[in-house]
Simulated scan of single mutants.
Amino acid sequence: MPAQPLYSDVAIVGAGPVGLFAVFECGMLRMRCQVIDPLDVIGGQCAALYPEKPIFDIPGYPRIGAGELIERLREQAAPFEPGYHLGQSVVGLERRDEGWRLTTSKGRVIQAKAVIIAAGAGAFGPNRPPLADLEHYEGRSVFYAVTQPESLRGKRVVIAGGGDSALDWSILLADIAEKVYVIHRRAKFRGAPESVARLHALAEAGKVELVVPCQLHRLEGDTAAGQLSAVVARDLDGQERRLDADTLLPFFGLSMNLGPIAEWGLALHKGQVAVDPTTCETSLPGVFAIGDIADYPRKLKLILTGFAEAASAAHAIHPLVHPDEELHWEYSTTKGVPGL
């Protein structure tokens, strides 16, 4: 028997920072939202990849951790009581007379008068190193993100990679882990110059050990329990080095694609969704895109740009949800937070 649809004013695809702010903007215009995201937690990449990483370009916050930013956005959206449907993707989008019907990978059906796609870079996942038995350790002693740094206190940690994520976590864990090894295939790192300088200073102080130029070669441990005992690296001459380790953190970037979004009939440009920059509406009437997934000439890929796009989309959606009501716009300082 088909699932009964859940009716809402707006369906938001993506629970990252821009999607969460869209809940607030829609709520300020008395529009209810349902939010769908394939991750098991809200926050998108901020929560999944770098919750401890500082962000410096959020207005009013000289410095704020990515995880803290998500918590503040969740708190800001909370008065409007959004529904969160996590751990599931939107696999179907169908036009209906009264709006759009979305079907998720878990069989949830959501009927909405408008859709906001706030899916960041689209579907994404880590680039996995080509190591035998890797899958036995993933999620138990091999991780592609660190959500609780304290869980690594006193452990022997191998970090592989040469970009910003590898550098950031090497620096942070230097004072938490018992031992930090950094494996990179080159002696030169690709991250921010300040981070590279800090990493080398930590290496000189003996707080981290650089294993360069080397690559991951083999894992050793108890595959049944998923527990590493060592990571074996190999240099350019084929010489191996065994590193006693409890945890491996491979940071080789993300593989990204639009996933099912690419099949929805949207006009695309270079792998992104083309929108009208004045409203963020896509080529499908009633479907909007905001944040990194949205594309238009001279687009700036910044979180604050996505926040502004959320406001533009919400105002463009208002007449679809309240067709007989003229929008008398007021500053939030004047009207406060309205009830729904």
Rank of each mutant, 00 (worst) to 15 (best):
M1T: 15
P2T: 15
A3H: 14
D9F: 05
V10L: 13
V10T: 04
V10D: 15
V10H: 14
G16A: 00
G16I: 06
G16F: 05
P17N: 05
P17H: 08
V23P: 03
F24M: 03
F24Y: 12
E25W: 09
G27F: 02
R30A: 10
C33V: 12
C33H: 10
L39M: 06
G44H: 02
Q45T: 00
Y50D: 01
K53M: 03
P54A: 02
P54L: 04
I55Y: 05
Y61F: 13
R63F: 04
G65D: 07
G67F: 06
L69D: 06
P79C: 04
F80I: 01
P82W: 01
P82G: 02
Y84C: 05
V90S: 09
V90I: 05
E94V: 14
R95I: 05
R96H: 13
D97I: 10
E98P: 05
E98T: 15
R101D: 09
S105Q: 00
K113P: 02
A119F: 03
G120K: 05
A123P: 03
F124H: 02
F124L: 05
E138A: 07
V142S: 08
V142I: 09
V142H: 07
Y144V: 03
Y144C: 04
Q148A: 11
R153K: 15
R156L: 07
R156P: 13
A160N: 13
G163N: 08
G163H: 05
L167S: 11
W169E: 02
L173G: 02
A174T: 06
I176N: 04
I176D: 00
Y181W: 15
I183N: 08
R186T: 14
R190H: 12
R190L: 10
A192Q: 14
P193L: 11
E194V: 12
S195E: 11
A197T: 15
H200F: 11
G206K: 11
E209R: 14
L210I: 07
L210Y: 07
V211H: 07
V212Y: 09
P213V: 00
C214M: 13
Q215P: 02
A225V: 02
A225E: 06
G226Y: 10
S229W: 03
V231Q: 13
V232G: 14
A233S: 13
Q239R: 13
Q239A: 13
E240R: 08
R241T: 12
R242P: 02
R242A: 11
L243V: 00
D246K: 08
L248A: 08
F251C: 01
L254V: 06
S255T: 12
L258N: 04
A262S: 12
W264F: 09
G265L: 10
G265N: 06
L266N: 05
L266V: 04
V275Y: 09
V275I: 01
P277Y: 03
T279E: 00
C280L: 02
S283Q: 14
S283V: 15
S283C: 08
A289R: 00
I290Q: 00
I290V: 11
I293F: 06
A294I: 06
A294K: 07
P297W: 08
T305G: 01
G306S: 04
F307D: 04
F307K: 06
A308R: 11
S312V: 07
A314T: 01
A316Q: 03
H318F: 15
H318T: 15
P323N: 06
E325W: 00
E326C: 10
E326W: 09
L327F: 13
W329Y: 14
E330P: 04
T333M: 11
T333D: 14
T334W: 10
T334V: 12
G336V: 03
V337K: 14
L340V: 10
